[in-house]
Computed example of a mutant assay.
Amino acid sequence: MKKLIQDPRILIGLALAHVLLFFSFHDRTIFWYIFSGSVLILIAYAMLQEEVDDEVSFFQYIVSGTLGGLLLYFIFWLGIQGFRLLHLPIETSLNNLYKWFAPSLFWQYLALILVAAPGEELFWRGFIQKRLGKKFKPSLSVLTASILYASVHIYSGSFLLILAALLSGLAWGTLYLWKKSMPLVIVSHIIFDLMMFIILPLH
């Protein structure tokens, strides 16, 4: 914790992320307007702090990223089916999550694919996790970055979204640690979002 506090760049980035996401989630009727602008600001901040890693070939990051995104979606699908089999109260939370925050207009889908997915990876994995990796052991940097990623989702008021952010953060953080390729995790995030919001939504 002391090492984290001693890094002003991380602290400024986290403060910025919390303020921006607080306002993004504050009014659900204009969520996509504020969220898209917020992610663009986080992209700009991250790009000023750290270089983008890309240590795999184009073919590898397309294939591995696609497989990673599909695998993560399948894990989430299994989790939802498990909740349903156990008759746990998941449907209302899941339906609300889609109603409140899922894209519904064409430009929102474009923002999801071209802004949100790349931006979240550039900031949380490419900046936060990478910078934490200079101070902590690799596994701890992945865990810490994932918890911090989940923490900005508290303003959504959805425990399900916080849990989803934590689990997906761990998955993408591990993938980034393993392959050292930002394009790969961006592709994985995009494929996951396409499955979740367009191809096979979970609600």
Rank of each mutant, 00 (worst) to 15 (best):
Y98A: 04
L42V: 00
A164P: 04
D27I: 10
K3R: 10
I190W: 03
L184H: 02
L78Q: 01
W77N: 00
A150T: 11
V152C: 03
I12S: 13
M195F: 08
I190L: 04
W100L: 12
K134C: 06
L161G: 00
I80W: 13
F192T: 04
F136E: 14
D54N: 14
Y155F: 15
I190Q: 04
Q108N: 07
T92E: 15
I12F: 13
L105E: 15
E51H: 15
H203L: 03
I186M: 12
V56E: 05
F76Y: 14
I43R: 07
W178I: 05
I198N: 15
I186L: 09
P118D: 09
I30A: 14
V142W: 08
L160T: 02
F123A: 01
L11W: 08
D53S: 14
V56F: 04
I128D: 12
L85Q: 02
S151E: 08
I90C: 11
Y155N: 09
L160E: 06
F59W: 15
L40S: 05
L16S: 11
M182E: 15
I162E: 07
L114N: 08
L140F: 12
L177A: 05
H26F: 13
K179N: 00
I75W: 09
L202W: 03
I75N: 04
P8Q: 13
M182S: 06
W107C: 07
V142Y: 11
S24Y: 02
A165Y: 10
R28S: 13
T92L: 07
L14R: 09
H26V: 05
K2R: 10
W32Y: 02
A15E: 08
L161C: 00
V63K: 01
R9M: 14
Q49S: 11
L97Q: 12
E121I: 01
Y176V: 08
L175F: 06
I154W: 13
Q6V: 04
S38K: 00
L88R: 11
I5S: 13
V185P: 01
Y61N: 00
L170W: 08
F127W: 08
W77Q: 13
S168Y: 11
L21Q: 09
V52D: 06
I147M: 14
S158M: 14
I75H: 09
Y33K: 10
Q6C: 11
F123S: 01
L167M: 08
D7I: 12
H189R: 12
K99W: 10
V115Y: 02
F35Y: 10
I198T: 15
S139E: 09
L11K: 10
G79N: 12
P118E: 09
L11G: 07
R9E: 14
G65E: 07
M196G: 02
G65A: 01
I190C: 02
Y149M: 10
Y176G: 03
P183W: 03
S36Q: 04
Y176F: 15
F106L: 15
I43P: 03
F76K: 05
I5Y: 11
G126L: 10
L48K: 10
Y45K: 06
T174H: 05
F123G: 00
S24H: 00
S104L: 05
P103S: 09
Q108R: 10
F74C: 02
E50I: 00
L110R: 05
A117F: 06
A116M: 09
L160R: 05
A15Y: 00
K134Y: 07
F101C: 01
S64E: 05
R9W: 15
Y109E: 06
L48W: 14
G69P: 00
W172M: 15
I128P: 13
